[in-house]
Each structure stands twice: as structure tokens, then as C-alpha cells.
């Protein structure tokens, strides 16, 4: 059991990372990563939605007619996203207005449906729930590393705290979407060079 849990997290976070390995969730990885705080809130939202959607899909998997499963998944996912949106609006209004339309856009994040379809539909509720958390953390890892560089280069700050003096010239380019493309490209390159995929051994001889 412990080993199983460890494997779920190893896969979700590193070896089978949803962003740099499965190339899912790219749209939001490009959209919200110019500030660390936005990336952080977005990632928390995604972890919540992915884990609970996977849990619910898994609970219903034996009752759901096969050809309806995607409709059911979409319904479940959108319900959780709306919950996140409402809770933010009611209890964290500042965060809600900072994230604006992006909260609703969690619905379109392919990672969630990807995990429901690839994992939760075939596995028991608890592993599915953990798999959702693991994938969410993998997503968070990538978003935060992109945002770290974009916010630093684009604003000269970390989490809104200025870390460089007046001499610093902001790279406007990094705040805009093209900056995200470059950062994402670099991360994909590094990850695919240094982090072994599931089937390969570390430093495997070719």
C-alpha cells in the first residue's frame, strides 16, 4: 500500500508529470504564470478539483454506463469548479478578483479529465483521490517554476516582494504570453533531458 502511494506520487509529480510529460494543462500554464501568487492559487484550485473529481468518478465508476462516462465526468468536474469559484467569492474576495476568469477556466484543464479517464475510471476511490493530488502537485511544480522566473524577470519581485533595486529593468516580454512559451519550452527541454520517463532507467544505455 505504502509502495503504491509512493509510486502514484512519483508518477504524478515527476515521471509522468501532466505538464512536461503529458503536455496537458498548457493553456493555464501559459496564462496565469506571470505572478507566483496567481499560479499558487490556481494550482491549489486544480489540486482540489482534480482530487475530488477523481474520487467522485471512481465512486460512480461501477454505476456509470460506459458510453456516458465523459458526460458524467464533465458534470462532476464543472460542479467542483463552481464550488471553488463560489467559495473564493464568498470567503476570499481579494483572491477571487485577482484570479478573475481563470477560476472558471479550471474546467477546461485537460489534466482533470485526463486523470478521470485514464486513472479514476479504472481504480478504487482512495488511489484515485491520491492520484488527483499527485497530478495537481506535478502541475503546481511546473507552474511555480515558470512563474518564479517570469515574475522575477518581469517585475523584479517574488510573491510581490521586491528583491532587486531601482537599477533593475523589467522584462515586459516575460509578463506577456510569449515569455511563457519560452519558459515552458526550456522546462520541457530540461525535464525531458534530466528526468527519466517511466519506462527508461536512469542513465539507461542506448
Amino acid at each position: 500500500m505504502i509502495k503504491g502511494v509512493k509510486n502514484i506520487f512519483k508518477d504524478g509529480v515527476f515521471q509522468d508529470n501532466p505538464v512536461y510529460r503529458q503536455i496537458l494543462g498548457i493553456c493555464s500554464a501559459l496564462a496565469v504564470t506571470n505572478l507566483l501568487i496567481n499560479s499558487f492559487a490556481m494550482s491549489l484550485g486544480l489540486i482540489f478539483v482534480t482530487s475530488f473529481s477523481s474520487l467522485t468518478v471512481s465512486l460512480l465508476r461501477n454505476y456509470t454506463p460506459g458510453h456516458l462516462r465523459m458526460m458524467v465526468q464533465t458534470l462532476i468536474i464543472s460542479a467542483y469548479v463552481i464550488i471553488v469559484d463560489i467559495v473564493l467569492k464568498a470567503y476570499f474576495p481579494a483572491m477571487s478578483s485577482a484570479l478573475g476568469p481563470y477560476v472558471g477556466l479550471i474546467i477546461t484543464n485537460c489534466i482533470i479529465m485526463g486523470r478521470c479517464e485514464a486513472y479514476a475510471q479504472k481504480n478504487k476511490p482512495l488511489p484515485s483521490f491520491l492520484d488527483g493530488i499527485a497530478s495537481g502537485i506535478g502541475y503546481m511544480l511546473v507552474l511555480m517554476s515558470i512563474a518564479l522566473f517570469r515574475e522575477f524577470l518581469g517585475f523584479g519581485t517574488f510573491f510581490g516582494i521586491a528583491v532587486v533595486g531601482d537599477w533593475w529593468t523589467n522584462w515586459i516580454f516575460m509578463i506577456m504570453p510569449p515569455g511563457a512559451f519560452f519558459m515552458l519550452g526550456i522546462i520541457l527541454w530540461l525535464a525531458n533531458t534530466y528526468i527519466p520517463a517511466k519506462d527508461e532507467k536512469v542513465g539507461g544505455a542506448q
Binding site: 460512480l60 454505476y63 456509470t64 454506463p65 458510453h67 456516458l68 458526460m71 458524467v72 458534470l75
Partner: peptide
């Protein structure tokens, strides 16, 4: 009928 009822119920 079953899929329809299922979908209605879950919705």
C-alpha cells in the same frame, strides 16, 4: 431508459 434516468438523477 436506464442511461437517461441515470443522467437525470446525477444532474
Amino acid at each position: 431508459l436506464k442511461p437517461i434516468l441515470f443522467m437525470i438523477a446525477i444532474t
